[in-house]
Design a protein around this nucleic acid. Sequence first.
DNA 1: GACAAAGTAGGACAGTCGTCCTACATCATG
DNA 2: CATGATGTAGGACGACTGTCCTACTTTGTC
Lengths: 189, 189
Amino acid sequence: MSSMTTRDHIVDAADLLFYQHGFEHTSFSDIADVVNISRGNFYYHFKSKDEILDAVINKRLADRRMMMEQWEIQGKTPQDRIQSFINILVVNGDKIKRYGCPIGTLTSELAKLNHNAQAEANGLFMLFRAWLCRQFTLLGRTADADELAMHLLARSQGVATLANAFQDDKFIAQEVKMMCNWLKSVTPS
Amino acid sequence: MSSMTTRDHIVDAADLLFYQHGFEHTSFSDIADVVNISRGNFYYHFKSKDEILDAVINKRLADRRMMMEQWEIQGKTPQDRIQSFINILVVNGDKIKRYGCPIGTLTSELAKLNHNAQAEANGLFMLFRAWLCRQFTLLGRTADADELAMHLLARSQGVATLANAFQDDKFIAQEVKMMCNWLKSVTPS
DNA sequence: GACAAAGTAGGACAGTCGTCCTACATCATG
DNA sequence: CATGATGTAGGACGACTGTCCTACTTTGTC
C-alpha cells in the first residue's frame, strides 16, 4: 500500500515481530530495521513502547473484526460461521506451529509481565467469545451459548499450544475433525 | 530444608520466578534478591543463565515424575489416575489463574525466543503425553491411546490459557466437569 | 521564493542486563 | 597452626535497552 503512513508501517512491523518474538523480546532496533527508520525517531509517532503495543492490539482487534464480518458474509448458517472459526487452525496452521496463537501467547506474556495492557489484550479474547456466543445463540443454544463459546475457544487454544510444541500437522487435523463432530453434536436438528 | 545447598536455593527461586514472570523477564538480580546472594556469584554455580534454565527444566521434570508416581500409588484404576491429571486444574487453580500453566507458558516463551532449550522444555509435555498414553492403554484404548492423551493435554492447556485470561473459577469447574464426562465416555464399560 | 509545519536522522542519556574477575571468608584436612 | 579447596562478595566490563533531545530535511501553503 503506497497510502500507508510511516506510523502504519511501524504498527505492522511491530504486530508481526511481537507475534514472532514476543513483546518484550522485540526492541525498537528490531522494528527500526524492518521499517528502515532511525531508532530515536519512534517518539515522533509514539510516546512509548507501550503506546506501540496499544496500537498493535487495536490493529489486531480491527483485523479480527473484519475477519468475522467476512465470516458472516460467507457463512449462511451459524454452523458455517463457527466452522470458519475452527478452520483458523488449518488456514494459519504453519504460523501457529511456529509461533502459537497470536492472541493466547500475547495475553500469556502480558500476564507474566503484569503489564497495564492486559485488559486491552484480553479484549481480543472477549471479541471472539462474544461473537461465538452470538453464533451459538443463533444456533438455538440460547441457554448455554456462552459456555459453548468458551469451550470452543479453550479447545482451539489448547490445540494451538500443543501444535506449537509438537509441530504436528496430523494432530491439528485430528483435533479439527473432532471439533467439527462436536459442533454437529451441539447443533439442534 | 536445612540440607539444601545454595545451588538448590537458586534453582528453586528461579523455578518460581520463571513461572511467575517468565524466563527472559527474570534477571539475576531478581533471583539474587530472593536467595540473598550477590549477583556476580552465580557463575560459581552456573556458567550461564541458560544453565540455570536447564536446571529448572530438570527440576520440573523430576517434580512431575514424582507427582505421577504418587498418582500411580493413590489411583487404583487408570480412570482414577487420569482423573488426578484433570484435577490439577482445580488443585492449582489459583496459580493457573495468575500465571497460566508452568509448562505451556514456558514452551511458548522459549519458542518465541527460539531458545536452545526448546527441546528440553518440550520434554515436559512429552512426559505427560507418554504417561497419559500409558493410562489410556491400560484403560483398554490401545488403538487410540496417544490420540486421547494429546486430546486431554490440549483440553487442559486451553482451559489454563483462558482461566489465566478471564480469571474465571466457574469456567474451570465447568470444563473440569466436561472432561470428567468425556473420560467416562471413552472408558470401555 | 519565503516560511512555518511535518517528519526524520543520529546520537546522548541513564539504567539494566549477562558475564567475568579478583579479593576475601570459611572450612576441612594435614 | 598451616594450607589448599570450597564458596562468597562486590564491583568492572561492554552491550543493549527505552527514552529524550537537537539539528536537519522535506513538504505544503501563502
